[in-house]
């Protein structure tokens, strides 16, 4: 994957992409539990800005604040 990334710097192959994808999909998994999770603010925290930044962007895009 690193080799593909180095070819044209396509972020799709950046090693950090799985991290943000994981958080975004976990958000989807939480909202799938409709009896337990209502819509509201979604703060995020963590040691990796590369993981949390795209996740925040997506959550914002989806109007989930």
């Amino acid at each position: 994957m690193q080799k593909l990334f180095q070819e044209d710097f396509n972020p799709r192959y950046n090693p950090s992409r799985p991290w943000s994808m994981t958080q975004m999909r976990a958000t989807t998994a939480a909202y799938a539990e409709v009896a337990y999770f209502g819509k509201g603010k979604v703060p995020g925290s963590g040691g990796s800005k590369r993981a949390i930044s795209p996740a925040v962007a997506l959550i914002n895009d989806q109007g989930q604040e």
Binding site: F37, G38, K39, G40, K41, V42, S45, G46, A55
Partner: peptide, 10 residues
């Protein structure tokens, strides 16, 4: 009860 929003972390 049902929560409103959540804190996500890894």
């Amino acid at each position: 009860g049902k929560s409103q929003g959540f804190h996500i972390t890894g």
